[in-house]
Amino acid sequence: MWKSYVKLILFMPLIILALLLQDVQYLIIISLTSLIFTKIFSKNFKKTIIFLAKYLVFTVPMLLILWSLFSTFDNAIIATVKFSSLSIASFAMISCFRVQESFKLLSSIFPYKFAFIIVLCFRYLDVVKEDIGRINLIRKTRGFEDKGNFLKKIKAKIELIVPVFVDSLLKAEDIACALDVRCFGIYKKRTFWS
């Protein structure tokens, strides 16, 4: 348990500082330190880095362009660095916690039922992601092609929403049943075994 508190104590100041500071060099130092912490604590450091790189490649140019439309370029740079260091620090923190660990930590702050909702959300994001991939494949077998201009592509993505939602709702019923069967929530407290 103390280990997760250590992680929290190390990462929280970084995130708060990233929120407060305005200087580019300090912000870069913050994101580097959070990456070092990830290297120490995280089990799959490589995966985190790849994810972050993908994420930043998309967001950084977009922020730079949008911000410089409404303000000067200098401001745009500061805003972008601030945003990216903030997201690096928070993603790094999330990647350092394992599911069971974060459940334990969250339920020491919130009621455990509420904490479990958050944990379950993160777990089922993966499932939904898999479902989307599969639906996309199925559409291709029906002769659908992922070509055309930007608008058409977005329209094609919207078509996916209904099947994904319906299936997730049906799954939710099963999850509710599984939770009930395991007596989840019949007492106000629960033990955390690990």
């Binding site: 069971q100 007492y187 629960r190």
Partner: peptide
């Protein structure tokens, strides 16, 4: 409901 086999088996007992 969880990620590891042992946690899955223990989940109900923890609730009790």
């Amino acid at each position: 409901l969880t990620t590891k086999v042992s946690h899955e088996i223990a989940f109900g007992l923890e609730n009790l």
